[in-house]
Structure formats: structure tokens, C-alpha cells
Simulated assay, not measured.
Amino acid sequence: MAVFTPAALFLWFFAVVTTATNRLMELRASGLVAEQCHGNVTLLCDISHDKTLKVNHFSWIRMADGETLCTFNDDAEAKKHNRILCKYTDQEQLALTLRHLLPADEGNYTCKLRSNLGIRHTMSAVKVRECFQGSEPVPSSSGVACRFYGVYPQGEVHWFDRDKNVTDKSTADNSGKPDRHGMYNVSSRLLTEDRSREEYNCSLWIPSTGAYLTSTLVRMPVKGGATSVHIVGLVWVLFRTWILIA
């Protein structure tokens, strides 16, 4: 015949009560949600229960800094973060929406519930995918240059002359430091004396993914083009002056 110590009886009783309580109420949340930066993501937290429920506290918390971003009695219009929307539905679901996603939003989020049926919490995670905001040519007196901005994660510029990689002839101009939103600006100059080539392919390479994110064609500056513009402008001014005098 087995003999139960007081400690063993307590653990058994605690396990029975916990199991019974878990059957009365469950909390389910979105798992891993991945989206490109500048997009929108919504984390859902749902309550499932068998008895009458009275919610005392229901919230989404960002684990990186412990800040409560959303609670069940929030007014979405009055939220101090204009990128964050919070909605509690009659179906006992708490939805946290992160708008215009930034790298700083990546990480774990906890959904917490306190009610008459007990205390529960569950986790969700946000993954920010690689992206870029835009690209533009950069003025260069010698060769060609281009710039990608709003890049995440950090990238590199690779140059191609048709199918030939000529990156070894280029110079990177980016500082390597992200801006306040966690984005990078990536730029490069390709020095070339070959004026017979009219354009080069400027491609954005993301080392962490081992893939090219985007590319753009950059044309060689027209030699003497700026001078031609100034001459045409001067002729136009002289012509207008002659008309006024005449």
C-alpha cells in the first residue's frame, strides 16, 4: 500500500485543480507572423471557456521593453501610438494591429488574461521580412552611382556589366549604421573609363538571406550634357532680352 507524504498530496491536489481550471478556460494566440516592413500585421488572442467569464485584465505586451500596447478597454482612436490599433470584440478576442511595420517591431509579444476563471498567458512573435523603400541614381562626375534607402536588413550594392560582376571596381559609400527606425541607406560608386557602355545594373544584395532584393539600371552621364543645358538657357535669356528691347 502506497504512503503519500503531505508534499506529495499537495502536488497531486495542485495538479488536479490546475487541470480542471485549464479545461474551464484556454487562451490561444497567433503564432509567428511575418510581414515586410512598411506593411501591417495583426496579432489575435482568443479566449475559449466553458463557464461564465468575467474579464478583469486582457492585454498585449511587447516583451522587448515590457510596454503594454493594447488592453481590452482601449479606445483605438485615443491610442497614443498612431501606428498601433487595439480592438476587443464580443467574441472575446483581442486584436493588436501594428501598422507601417518597422524593424524595431520584430520580437515576441505576450497576451495576458486575468479573469474569474484564472490567469493565463500565451506568446506570439513578429518577424520583419527584408525590404527596401526606394532607390535613386546619385550624381557622379566619374562613372555611375546609385543608392537604395529604407533597406532592411543591412545590404550591399553589387554592380553588373551585362552578366559580368564588376563590383570589385566599385566603392561603397554607406556608413553601415541604421537610422532611428532601424533602416539602412546603401550606396555605391562604380568607377569606369569605358564610355562605350551606356548603362550598368545596380543590384541590392542581402547577405543574411543570400539573395538579391531588387535591381535598377543606371545610365552613364552624358558627357557635356550639363554644359549644353546652360548654353541653351543662356540663348533663351538673350532672345527674351532682345524681344523686350526691340
Rank of each mutant, 00 (worst) to 15 (best):
L53T: 10
T110A: 14
A246K: 08
I84Y: 08
W60K: 14
P221Q: 00
E193H: 07
L96I: 08
S59T: 10
A34M: 02
R129K: 12
H100S: 15
F72V: 02
G39M: 10
R129M: 10
W159I: 01
R28Q: 12
G210M: 02
A76P: 02
K112D: 01
Y212V: 08
W159V: 00
P207K: 09
V3N: 15
P6G: 05
S228N: 10
F14V: 09
V166E: 04
S48T: 10
K127Q: 08
L32W: 08
I119A: 12
L85Q: 15
D105E: 12
D161L: 10
V166H: 05
G150T: 00
H100G: 14
K223Y: 12
D46I: 00
G182V: 08
P137W: 05
F160D: 04
D74H: 02
D46R: 10
L191D: 08
V222P: 04
L43V: 05
I84C: 03
T171N: 13
A246S: 10
L117N: 14
V166Y: 03
D65P: 00
E26D: 04
S175Y: 02
L244Q: 06
L9R: 13
Y149E: 01
R28E: 12
M183F: 15
T42E: 12
D163Q: 10
S188V: 08
G134R: 12
L85F: 10
L85M: 10
K51T: 09
P207M: 04
L113A: 10
F10K: 09
R83Y: 15
K112S: 12
V138I: 07
L244Y: 13
S141T: 04
D105Y: 14
R23V: 05
K223N: 11
A8N: 05
V157W: 01
E92R: 15
G31V: 10
K164V: 04
L85Y: 04
V151G: 04
K79G: 05
M123R: 13
N201G: 06
I84M: 02
F4I: 06
A78S: 00
R23C: 07
E67C: 00
